[in-house]
Write a protein that binds this DNA or RNA. Structure first.
Length: 584
RNA sequence: GCCCCCGUAGUUCAACGGAUAGAACAGUUCCGUCCUAAGGAAUAGAUGUAGGUUCAAUUCCUGCCGGGGGCACCA
């Protein structure tokens, strides 16, 4: 219908002498203005030497002559908008159709898109920052899937580097305190986290320790010490086990896990093959010639390190190989991204989600990728998200300490449970439901606002679960489901269409457009804000009338509308990675 | 010093260059014989500042003020 209106306007504008008109059909800000609106009259009034209102009226009179069967009225409104109102029965029929023909995604059918997110560090805590990355990455993945593309979810855990050397050094000082394998996974990983913090403190405080740890780092790369390798394998295994648990809890299933340790040699090879040639170095670099034409290489030596000079591209210089000859994360990341495109050569895009403190770094990295033969940088998109901060309450008082994902989730879960005591639920249900609600609350807080800016997590607001929140949406879906359960004896075959439709219907039929826009813009918040409107419309509908009423011939329609709402809300929440509990 | 991002009600957030700048929380009022009140209805309150571009600017451009992040061997 939207397209039909646009096509019709195009014809009219062409007749009026504008054959290159750009027709944009929008949703009016206020839903009472109409179902669709167009601004053509304002855009082209000057060229047609008319006033916007006069042109709008002219367009409308032409439009009316064509008598489109689904249009009720077309009106012009100052300063020159043209508003289109659909016939009520057309909208109502749309609702019924949406129930009988639910939207299907063509998952795994279309072009491939790679997306990397979460990227935790072994030996360190999986903290709230990783929840941010995971929540945003998962939602963007689902949006892309919804648009019909095939998504490759990639995780890049860090399992090599200085932070590991710091942890292992501390472990060596506390060999007797290392928990046994039987200890709970949280206890084992908490121990590792503690070791990392201690190691970092010693590294900064004592130059001789710094030296020891730097050397230990080398030993780790070389794998030259059996006892070090043992500690390393143990800690790595524990961390990865914990991560897998958290991914499942958060609802992510990665297709590909690529380890930093494997990328070190790959990256090194690429860097060394693309060095600026010095005169007596030419013979050494000859072997890289088969790879193509490098106009003087990409990396150069500086103060004993190998760097990329970004200044000539408006970027800054970064070290790729340090003066000890070890690859920095720049090099490993380079190896990673080249590897990704080697594995999935047919991918049209590679998205990387990280905190926005890495924005400038990723500009450098994508530049380097673009300078390589395959120009992978041109297909690479970095999305930087903000930080999760805590405004008040228990969480913010833990200054200095990193807040782990486990701590946050269990804290919120506890608060939800207190609330659920008032409900009529079995204890198993409470466990299940409180987890779904807690995760939904956290995820929604993250996703309801623009990705780039910091999220202020107000524990008090998030647990009150009033107003704009994940639980508010989950609750609206649960109520709808409850109505549907009670209405099972009603048949869908005899539906009488209403004479009027409300905001609820109009919002429901917008859903596909909203999802498409959110997918194109990588903006889960578009969906989140839409769902808030949708949930409010349903709650208002729910409060203002009785849905199931055996004496009312329109009852069947309202039940179908409730069903359409429920399906839309569940699907919308799915796009955000949020589940709907069975009851709450 | 250089580069990037951000300044919207008391607070936390919205607003494809468009209409009367939307919500929520906090405040002040209502709604409990009814399908889950984690709900609904009402009320009051905001675009940092000075210019520019445009039929139209919270949105684009410039200056200023204020906040955050990043700039060589950490990830």
């Amino acid at each position: 219908m939207k397209q039909k209106i646009a096509d019709t306007l195009m014809v009219i504008m062409t007749d009026l002498g504008i054959d290159d008109a750009e027709i944009k059909i929008e949703y009016p800000e206020n839903i009472e203005y109409g179902d669709y609106s167009s601004n053509v009259a304002m855009v082209y009034s000057k060229r047609l030497k008319s006033s916007p209102m006069m042109l709008a009226k002219k367009v409308i009179s032409e439009f009316d002559k064509l008598k489109l069967d689904f249009i009720d009225t077309v009106t012009s409104v100052s300063p020159g908008f043209i508003n289109f109102k659909l016939k009520a029965n057309v909208v109502a029929q749309g609702i019924i159709n949406s129930v009988s023909n639910p939207i299907k995604e063509n998952r795994d059918m279309g072009e491939k898109v790679m997306i990397e997110y979460t990227d935790p560090n072994t030996f360190k805590a999986f903290h709230v920052g990783h929840i941010m990355s995971n929540t945003i990455g998962e939602s963007i993945s689902r949006l892309i899937e919804f648009s019909g593309k095939s998504v490759i979810r990639i995780c890049y855990p860090s399992d090599i580097g200085l932070h590991i050397a710091k942890s292992i050094w501390s472990m060596q000082q506390h060999l007797a305190d290392i928990p046994g394998e039987a200890a709970p996974i949280e206890e084992r990983t908490a121990f590792l986290g503690k070791m990392y913090v201690e190691g970092t403190n010693s590294y900064d405080a004592d130059p001789s320790v710094k030296n020891e740890i730097d050397e230990l780092n080398q030993v780790l790369y070389d794998k030259s010490d059996v006892s070090v390798n043992e500690l390393y394998e143990k800690g790595r295994r524990w961390s990865l086990e914990h991560f897998d648990m958290l991914y499942e809890l958060l609802g992510t299933k990665f297709d590909e896990q690529i380890f930093e340790s494997d990328m070190a040699p790959v990256g090194l090879k690429i860097v060394l093959a693309n060095m600026v040639m010095s005169k007596n170095d030419v013979s050494k670099t000859m072997r890289s010639e088969g790879h193509g034409q490098h106009t003087g290489g990409i990396f150069e030596e500086s103060d004993g390190a190998v760097v990329f000079k970004g200044e000539e591209y408006g970027l800054h210089t970064r070290v790729f190989i340090n003066s000890r000859g070890l690859p920095t994360y720049e090099t490993k990341d380079l190896g990673l991204n080249v590897t990704k495109f080697q594995k999935y050569g047919d991918a049209i895009k590679s998205i990387i989600v990280t905190a926005n403190e890495q924005n400038d770094y990723f500009r450098v990295l994508t530049k380097v990728l673009s300078l390589l033969d395959n120009k992978d940088g041109e297909k690479t998109l970095h999305i930087g998200h903000g930080m999760l901060r805590f405004s008040e309450g228990k969480m913010s008082s833990r200054t200095g300490n990193i807040i782990t994902a486990h701590a946050l989730i269990s804290e919120i879960e506890k608060m939800v449970m207190e609330r659920l005591v008032l409900r009529d639920l079995s204890s198993e249900e409470v466990d299940d439901v409180s987890e779904i609600i807690a995760i939904g609350a956290i995820k929604f807080t993250i996703l309801r606002q623009a990705i780039g800016s910091n999220v202020i997590f107000d524990s008090a607001a998030s647990i009150s679960f009033e107003g704009d929140s994940g639980p508010y949406l989950q609750y609206s879906a649960v109520r709808a489901a409850s109505v549907l359960e009670k209405s099972s004896k009603f048949s869908e075959s005899s539906v009488k269409l209403p004479y009027n439709v409300g905001i609820l219907e109009k919002l429901i039929i917008r859903f596909p457009d909203i999802a498409v826009r959110a997918s194109l813009e990588y903006s889960p918040q578009t969906v989140a804000n839409y769902l808030l409107q949708l949930g409010a419309a349903f709650n208002s509908f729910y409060a203002s009338q009785v849905i199931i009423d055996e004496k009312d011939p329109l009852s069947n329609y309202r039940i179908l509308l409730t069903k359409a709402f429920h399906m839309t809300m569940v699907k919308g929440l799915w796009l955000l990675g949020i589940k709907v509990p069975t009851g709450m």
